[in-house]
Every structure is written in C-alpha cells, then in structure tokens.
Amino acid sequence: MAYVWTMAEQSHGRLREVSFELLSRGRKLADKLDTKLCSLVFGSGLSDDTLQELVHRGADEVYVVDDARLDKFVVETHSNVLADLVQRYKPHTILAAATSSGRTLMPHVAVKVNAGLTADCTELDIEEDTKLLLQTRPAIGGNIMATIKSPIHWPQMATVRPKSSRPLPLDLNRIGNITRIAMFDAHYDERVKVLGLRPYDEGLAGIEESDVVIVGGKGMKKAENFGMLRDLARHFGGVIGGTRDAVDRGWLSYPHQIGLSGKTISPKLYICAGVSGSIQHLAGIKTSECIVAINQDPDANIFQVADFGIVGNLFEVVPLLNAKLGTCKKEGK
C-alpha cells in the first residue's frame, strides 16, 4: 500500500509546529491503511537531530529535499519538486497545512498531477471498503460541514486547518529513516525573486498558530483601550486580534483581522470583548476549542457560540480579570 505523506514546514532551520500536527493526522490514516507515514521536508540547514523530532512525533520515514534553493517558499519551484516526487513515488495521500504556503502549493500541484484537493479540512478519515480519504471541511462561513471524496484521482490531497489537531506526544523510542535527496536543477524556477520579509510587530506573527487569541471589537471604543487586551494576552501567552470594525477604525492593522475577509483561527482559547458575533466574524472562529465572550448586550449573537459568556461592561470586567489573574499567579494557584 502506498504511503501517507505529510508536508513539514520549516523556517530558518526550525520545524514549525504544524509539521507535527499533520503527523498526528497522518499517523491515524497510515494506521488505518496499514501503511507507512512519511514526512516531506523541503530546504537545507536542518540537522538530523532536528529531523528526528518528526520520527518521534509519528513519522516512519523522513524525506528531505536538501537544497538551499528551497529554503524560502517560492511556489513554482516547490511545486515542480513535489509534483515530480508524486509522479515517482505515487503516495496514497498528501496532507499539507492550510497555511499561506500550503494553500498556495497544494492547488498548484493538484493541477499538475491531476488530483482532487480539499481545502482547510477539520476532519479526515479513511473509508473502510474503498480506502478513500474522507475529507470534512466547514463551508459557507462555517455554516455547513461538507464531506468530500475524490473517488478516481490519485493521490488523495487535502490541506488541514492549523491547530485543528494536536501533535502526538514525543516518543523517543520510535525509529525511522531520514533520507536526504538532491533537487534536480531543472526544477528550479528562477522567474520569481524573493525580495525580503518585513516582519509584523511583535506578538502578531503566527496568529493562526497561537493557542490563545484575544479579540477586541467595536465595543473597545478606541485604540488605546487595547492595552488591557494586550495585558490579558500576556497572561495567556497569546496574541491579539480584532473584528473588521476594529480594523477599519484603524485600532489594529489588517493582519489582525479575524473573520470572513480576514483570518480563520482555531485556537484552544478565544476570548473576545465588545464583539457582537456577526456571521462574518464567526466564520473565522467557529472551530475554536473554547470561546469566551464579554459583551454588555445579553442578546448579542456571540453568546450563541460562547462556552462561557459574561454579560457586563468590558471596561469593568477585563481590568478585574487582569487583576485577578495577577493575584492567581502570585498566589501560585
């Protein structure tokens, strides 16, 4: 039986967390198919020690296309390499993270290898008799869940929403092969030049990958008031985001926007203050594990989806919450 592949992501010689999340998805599928799980890594500068973690988190095989020309994501080159590997090794399934690069690479490759692709899945399974990948994803702003399969095209391909699964615990006893392969020069596409990266202000990088996201809406009234949300975020080691109204008023920059025309997140904990819970905002947060809302309007729509809601004035609730979290810490609770 052909292998299950997951695409690892790296930057500056370090593996990103999504690489491990994908392995826990892939492990389950490979076990059901009774086949091997293989993690694919593109780029140079990853030591064997670093790569071993992929084995310890579930991979049976690690293939590294070890070439500095793959260090930065350029879709054309990455797509040439992946499409070639697919044609040579014919995997059963390929999973990539639904990140800016995964969501760019996979549709590009799907066209080249003539395969179906499902975006942003939150559940994956193997159909007993056919061994096809059952891909479930939210659609229409999270209002429906569609299960999709690709009955005659191979490989089975899906992108998986970051944070929608947890990495497997480290198992230092697991063993697996690390194989380094060279990239063909012909696969290098020189057309697009990467000019550089202008990093976000601190605390924003990886809002989709953050375990805790604190969101402020129009009810925050002005930019300065986000200070208390930043304090709250600091308590949890989280990051802050905003509704479209908060972004359009210039209180936060666009990369902070959560929702239909912004980012989709699935943190372990989402806390919002002064957010009404419009359908467009909910589209970006519905797969959060735990939703906490603070709003003074008892009829606010956000309470429909909240696991815990406080009806009250955020300018009283948030500072008190910050204060109590401070005391909790001090008392060592």
């Binding site: 209002n143 869940m145 299960t147 399969k149 939703i291 809601g309």
Partner: peptide, 19 residues
C-alpha cells in the same frame, strides 16, 4: 475530481454558561 458526499449542519449554539 472531488465529490461532495455528505452535508452536515453543525449546531451553531454551544449552549455555554452565561453569567
């Protein structure tokens, strides 16, 4: 290549606690 085989409607309401 892809076929939708099932549509489900997730419950929007989580039935959480509101204080």
């Amino acid at each position: 290549p892809t076929k939708v085989v099932k549509i489900g409607y997730p419950k929007v309401t989580r039935g959480g606690v509101v204080v």
